[in-house]
Design a protein around this nucleic acid. Structure first.
Lengths: 347, 347
DNA sequence: ACTGGCACTCGGAAAGTGGGAGTGCTAAGA
DNA sequence: TCTTAGCACTCCCACTTTCCGAGTGCCAGT
């Protein structure tokens, strides 16, 4: 890690701050005026020259000012950024969202909208993978002689349902009994394990299985094999906020970016990375490793249920974003979400 | 309605076709060559002049070719467009989507993605308003002593669920009984009517109500009053396809448009309009009445369940779109969807 | 070590230029 | 009377030229 003189640090910080708020290359004169520095433009130029050698800033061309490089941003967030305690206004508007009593699932999904509204950037949220959730119970509900509603509930309160058309019709009590037997047999496993067991059970096709359990397994399998189970667990909101940034108005870049929002693959990988460790993580520009995100930064923070990291919330915006504010917003959102999820949702 | 000589019609049709495929103003010479017309550019110019007077085409400036006006497009789709029977390729790729056995709800929602993929434009779908659906049954499922899962099933197969925290804990059999009583009391109403009845019942707070029904009403009310009931019933997919069109690359217009996709209000109104009558409807440019859609056209078609119109599918794209193809795709999608929904979903 | 001064560079806006595509009009031909 | 060839005209667009100003780097003086 580079180390700078205090003066150079101060300068860099002022420059990045100015560039973030204005979006224009910053010249020595402007910087002196704007930051109220007590030395002259010429001195500033010398220091800038040093910073440029270190790769922290660069000039778009000879007679423009300087703009931060990705490395500059990185240095900035690593060492210069006093993580601001979030504006009370922001916290209040975030907390408001948690007052509404909601399903955990819905609450989590709504976080992307919340983040995009507060930051005016794109909000993203990675929800817990369904397949990893613990199996709580299954129920069969007869809708009509040919249609049965299968309801799958996980330990963390997610609910999945699907209407199936069983081979023969079942009475309500048969269904009840099937559910009971099934729940007894698969209690405590993860959904993924249950799915595997079901496939196994069907493959063996053993005659020794209770008739009623066999029916339950067949019906349940239709739910566990369904695509709802493997759906990409990623939500994005407020993409259109990004249209406001001139540095992203390059049509081709924009296309790539929106493509990434649609395909979700890359973002998902990125969010998976951020789930391995705690606290806010920041991917600046090319650091994410995905071309589509090259002039963007991603700020993420994982959230937990009862101490276990289960997902991530975050924000995507141009590299020129208010890192201090965004970081604190993402951080507090993740914390509040963890809190709301961990001690249940009070009504 | 204007009437044109056959020759003028032919010319207009060729011009619009050419403009749709190339996106450039069309000149007299180009038109003669491209459309293989047997008269000269000069004649074409004369006819164009007439068409311009009628307001069907216009020149962006003196020495450019002509482009269709909205009125021109309107005339085109109204009288010149032989509604092409859809390409077998398109139909096949659409039908493929229906093979997968799905929830009606999911099937409907997936239509927006389907339409956007097939047309390379933005696909939209208005799903049936939950509040209008017929109430089929309600069930209570104890998850834990303090949490009860309420499952609401409508006659058309939609399922809505929510976890609530009742004041006191109920046994499984109590819940069962409560559900039975409730279902008996409210059978056959629409969800909206049920909701109203519940509010009423709670307000009267009558002592003469059975204790068990009263509990059921209280718990049910939490579901019926929830925001899930009033959620905007509109899905949009493939917005990013629209970035490919140069005529929409104007950043401000684009912002407006994407804003409309996010807010949904305006689009919803538009789709509501299209639900009143059968068959494909087309809103060209300003015809929609919404500024955000000013250089866009919207093609919609309602879909039905058992002869009742319940929602709409559609496509949003630039006014310069392949109306023939888009119309047939939207039409066949709506038909296939109606079909799939009406005789149940075979597995 | 800092600063004022100064020559230099370069991008971007403004103004000028030429070419080409397309038009409208007119007059001649079918 | 309708069509067409010819022609003058218009106007955009792409290209160059010019000019200005912001900003730099360097040097010499404090």
């Amino acid at each position: 890690m580079v180390s700078l003189t205090p003066r150079a640090e101060r300068l860099l910080k002022a420059l990045i701050g100015q560039y973030i708020s204005e979006g224009q290359p910053v010249g020595s004169r402007t910087l002196v005026k704007q930051a109220g520095l007590e030395f002259s433009p010429a001195t500033v130029r010398n220091i800038m020259s040093d910073l440029e050698e270190l790769g922290l800033i660069r000039s778009p061309h000879t007679s423009a000012g300087r703009v931060p490089t990705e490395r500059g941003y990185r240095f900035f967030v690593n060492t210069l950024l006093a993580v601001k305690s979030p504006k009370t206004l922001d916290v209040a508007s975030i907390e408001d969202r948690f007052l509404a009593d909601q399903d955990p699932q819905q609450l989590i999904e709504s976080m992307s909208g919340l983040l995009s509204q507060v930051t005016k950037l794109a909000g993203i949220v990675r929800v817990p993978r369904r397949a990893d959730a613990g199996f709580l119970q299954l129920d069969f509900l007869a809708l009509s002689p040919t249609r049965v509603l299968v309801i799958l509930v996980t330990q963390d309160g997610q609910v999945l349902n699907r209407v199936i058309h069983p081979k023969r019709s079942y009475s309500a009590s048969e269904l009840q009994q099937a559910a009971n037997v099934f729940n007894g047999a698969y209690a405590g496993l993860s959904l993924d394990d249950v799915r595997r067991s079901l496939v196994e059970a069907l493959r063996r096709d053993s005659e020794d299985m209770q008739q009623i359990l066999r029916s339950a397994v067949e019906m349940a399998h239709q739910v566990f094999a369904g695509e709802a189970m493997s759906e990409a667990p990623l939500f994005v909101s407020g993409e259109s906020n990004l249209l406001a940034f001139p540095e992203l108005s390059n049509t081709e870049k924009l296309r790539r970016l929106f493509e990434a929002f649609t395909v979700k693959q890359d973002l998902l990988h990125l969010l998976d990375q951020s789930m391995v460790s705690q606290g806010v993580q920041i991917f600046i520009g090319a650091e994410s490793g995905y071309e589509a995100l090259e002039s963007c930064s991603v700020v993420t923070a994982p959230y937990e249920v009862d101490g276990q990291i289960v997902g991530t919330v975050g924000v995507v915006g141009p590299t020129r974003m208010s890192y201090d504010r965004v970081i604190s917003v993402v951080d507090v959102t993740a914390r509040l979400l963890s809190g709301a999820l961990s001690h249940g949702v009070p009504s």
